[in-house]
């Protein structure tokens, strides 16, 4: 599954802000770190602000601060603000014939979609930050707690 650019920027922004909840983080800092367009990022941050996940402060030293609940907010909550990954266009929907083959392929692709959605729903921002930390230490994470 490939997420849209705006969705990825939203996840980067939320993780950056939630990882430093006491600090204002600027759009420029995030744009530089991830080498992305600051214009696109600004739109994403405004949307996150409207959703009540970040607060912005203007002026020197201003920026964005995470104000959500990292233990409750899931990756899916953020993704759904930017795209609908729950309604894939079925085969045949674009005018092509709906055949048994198309329906069978839809069934298999739906399996993949459901697993992806369950994964996004099960990972909170707090869990994701721990995963980021583990990767930062050079591991893929423990296989047991």
């Amino acid at each position: 599954m490939k997420l849209q650019t705006g969705t990825s920027l939203a996840l980067y922004s939320i993780l950056e802000a939630a990882g430093n909840p006491e600090r204002q983080i600027s759009a420029a800092d995030i744009a530089t770190k991830y080498d992305v367009s600051i214009h696109h990022l600004a739109k994403v941050l405004r949307e996150l602000g409207r959703a009540g996940l970040v607060e912005s402060t203007r002026g020197a030293g201003g920026g964005y601060r995470f104000v959500g609940n990292a233990k409750r907010l899931t990756l899916m909550d953020v993704i759904e603000l930017f795209e609908d990954i729950g309604t894939r266009q079925p085969y045949g929907a674009a005018g092509a014939a709906v055949t048994d083959t198309a329906r069978a392929l839809d069934h298999v692709l739906s399996e993949i979609d459901e697993i992806a959605k369950a994964t996004f729903r099960s990972i909170t921002i707090a869990t994701m930050l721990r995963l980021v930390e583990r990767h930062g230490r050079g591991g893929n994470g423990p296989r047991h707690p």
Binding site: T74, E114, I115, A118, R121, S122, I123, T124, A126, T127, R130, G141, P142, R143, H144, P145
Partner: peptide, 21 residues
């Protein structure tokens, strides 16, 4: 290694095990 198996719509417990690593 430790494993478990859950219904994929069991968000509460899935999130718990995810939070444990």
């Amino acid at each position: 290694t430790v494993r478990t198996l859950l219904a994929r719509d069991n968000n509460l417990i899935l999130s718990f095990f995810r939070s444990q690593g």
